[in-house]
Each structure stands twice: as structure tokens, then as C-alpha cells.
Write a protein that binds this DNA or RNA. Structure first.
Lengths: 203, 203
DNA sequence: GTCTATAAAATGATAGAC
DNA sequence: GTCTATCATTTTATAGAC
């Protein structure tokens, strides 16, 4: 006698986890953390809501897992391009920008969560603070290297310029998401070239 | 015989409305639209939740009223400074930046709502789209005027440069909110001065 | 103008079976 | 690994009294 049809699709935990992360990333990108319900994510995955919570203890652990995974993937992708090769600030930043241009969902996830996480009560509040510091420091180091090679004016303050470039990149992403006609990378490159044109290749 | 103490504080509708708008602006600024409950706002106002909904038909109408009021106040404040006077792009933008620096709550309201409203289902989705277009056009006109006076290089594309400056301003606000040590206006001015240094004051 | 009462729906999470 | 059942809250909104 045949088993009763239950409709369940049982999958390896790892595969299901990946699937959930992908669906959740999209949902959080569109509606934010508070605006996304576990039931909604579960339904899109094709699983019950308690079934979803079997893989992630809570909604908080889910958003953190999503952000950490995507952040790691993204960083690795770009850094891998320049393995051992010498990179200028502009090249490095433009590589990120160009990659972002092909991944609006990812950009949206980080842009929306970034603003939402300004709230100290947001589960990813610390995550975004740390991430921001890390990115600024990375860019500041690239700027210093460029200055040493005479590619950027020594009159530029590395930390301040890094903060400015991170801000511009974030702002351009927001602008691009709101109005996809925005030439995000074109505007960014124009600004970077203007930076390189600042006079004063050492006194 | 004395009337029974009800504990109610009855106020003129207009005054209560203003009070609600002020409290709601703070709440939406911190926790966003989805993250703020009417009960929370009502409690801080010192009124019951249905008492609050007597003044605003719904949560949606409340957030829209908050944004419209603040947007109007802000624009009027800065434009009033330059009544009839000729302003440069840099002066106009720096006036906004300096005012913003004194109003973190206001900046946070618009930064958080701006990102949250990327969601087409957000009540202020259209509001922010229109507002963004309006600001970009205003700045583009200032740039054209500066170019005509020889204060900015004619090689700059007004619309593109306006989009870049709006992006930078928005990004700097986010950066400043996340890390108050950021010298928002200082960084902005540095960038604006760099723009003015672009060579080519007409052929 | 403000309140109490209440509805109606949604949500995050747990218990326990299969 | 996934489900059904269920709970405790929270949340927006309405009805009707004062």
C-alpha cells in the first residue's frame, strides 16, 4: 500500500538554507526588515513558516545570515580580480561600481538595510557600523598608496577623502535605485577623475 | 457637585495636530514607517490611539502629512535666506548642509524614509520620487547660472553634476548619522570647491 | 476632542507528530 | 526536515459614549 501523499519536499539542510537566504535577501531588499514577514518568505520558498524557522532560529538570525553571506560574496568577488596586482583607488572603486550595476537586488538590500539599521534596535546596527569603518579604512589605504606613487595629490586627506567617496558611492546607489536612468558608474568615474586632477604631485 | 475627573486634556484641533506631527516625525525618523506603531506615537503624545486617529484618518495620511510639513518648512527656511539675492551653487547647497547639521532628527527622518520609500508599496514612494526630481532640477539651474557667470566650467553637464551633488549630499547625511564624528559640511565644501576648480571658464 | 471597547488581521515563535 | 496546531502579542481601524 502506497504512502499517503504529504506534499512535502524534503531537501538537504544546506541546500534549503541557501534557498531561504536567496529568497529572504530579495524580500528584505524590497520591504526592509520590519516590512518583511517570515510567512511571506516561507511561502516563496515553498515551505511552512515553522519549517523555515527550523533552519534559522529567529528572524534576527535570518537577516544577519543574509547580510553576512552577501557581504562576503561581494568582497571576495572584487578582491579576487586584483589578486596580487597593483590597483589604483579608481580602479578598485569602479570595479565595485560596475559589479553593483549588474546586481540591483544586492544594492537595494544593502541600501535599504543600511538606512534601516541606523536604529540602534535594528539587529544589524553594529554590523553596518563595522562594515562602514572597514570600507573607509580600505579606501584610505588605497588613497595613501596612490599618493605614494604620485597618482593622487598629497594634499588630499586620506581618511576624509575615503569618507567622501564612500558617501558618494552610497548616495549614487540610492539615486540609481530610485531612478534607474541614473548613470551611476559614469557619474562616479567623473568624480574620481576630478579627484585625480587635483593639483600638487608633491612639492 | 463637581464633575467626574476624566483625565482628558482637550485641545484645539490645530494645536493637537501640530503636536502629533512633531512626535510622529521623531518616531518615524528612528524606527521607520513600518517600525513605528500608532499606539507608540499616541502614548508619547499623551492621547489614546483612537484619539490620534481622530486627527489623521490613517497611518498613511500621518506619514504623508509629516513629510510634507517638514519638507515645506525646510525649503522655505533656506530659500528665504536668499530672497532676491544672487546665490552660487555652493552657497545654496552649503546653506542646506549647515541647516541640516543643526537638525539631526530631520535629516534622519528623510534619510530613513527615503530608503524605505524605494518600495513602491510605501505610501511616500511617489513623494520622494517627485522631491528628488525637483531638487535635482533646482541644482541644475543653479549650475547653469554659475556657468553663465563664469563661476563654473562650461564643461560640466548641469543635470549630471546635479545628480552627483544630490547623491553626495544624501550619502554624507547617511555617513554623518551613522558616525556623528563625520564632518559632513566640511567634506561637502571640499568637494564643491574641487568642482569650482575644474578648468575651462569658456573657450 | 477624547475615551473605552472591540474587532479583525497579521506576526514571531513554540510544541509535538511524522 | 517538515508539517499542523496553537499561543501570545501587536497592530490598524471602527463603533459609539461623553
Amino acid at each position: 500500500m502506497a504512502r499517503v501523499e504529504t506534499g512535502r519536499v524534503r531537501r538537504p539542510a544546506a541546500a534549503r538554507r541557501e534557498q531561504i537566504l536567496a529568497v529572504a535577501a530579495d524580500a528584505f531588499a524590497v520591504a526592509g526588515f520590519r516590512g518583511t514577514s517570515l510567512a511571506e518568505v516561507a511561502q516563496k520558498v515553498g515551505v511552512s513558516q515553522p519549517g523555515l524557522l527550523h533552519h534559522f532560529d529567529s528572524k534576527e538570525s535570518l537577516i544577519l545570515a543574509v547580510l553576512q553571506q552577501r557581504d562576503l560574496q561581494d568582497e571576495q568577488h572584487v578582491e579576487a580580480q586584483f589578486q596580487g596586482v597593483e590597483v589604483t583607488t579608481r580602479e578598485w572603486l569602479m570595479a565595485f561600481c560596475r559589479r553593483n550595476e549588474t546586481q540591483p537586488g544586492l544594492v537595494r538590500l544593502f541600501t535599504v538595510q543600511s538606512a534601516e539599521s541606523l536604529n540602534p534596535a535594528h539587529p544589524a546596527h553594529d554590523f553596518f557600523y563595522q562594515r562602514n569603518q572597514r570600507v573607509r579604512e580600505r579606501i584610505a589605504r588605497l588613497i595613501v598608496a596612490d599618493q605614494e606613487k604620485g597618482r593622487l595629490s598629497p594634499s588630499l586627506d586620506p581618511a576624509a577623502t575615503a569618507a567622501e567617496l564612500v558617501s558618494l558611492m552610497n548616495g549614487l546607489q540610492l539615486q540609481w535605485l530610485r531612478d534607474p536612468a541614473t548613470d551611476m558608474c559614469g557619474l562616479f568615474e567623473t568624480s574620481l577623475l576630478r579627484l585625480e586632477a587635483v593639483p600638487g604631485t608633491k612639492a
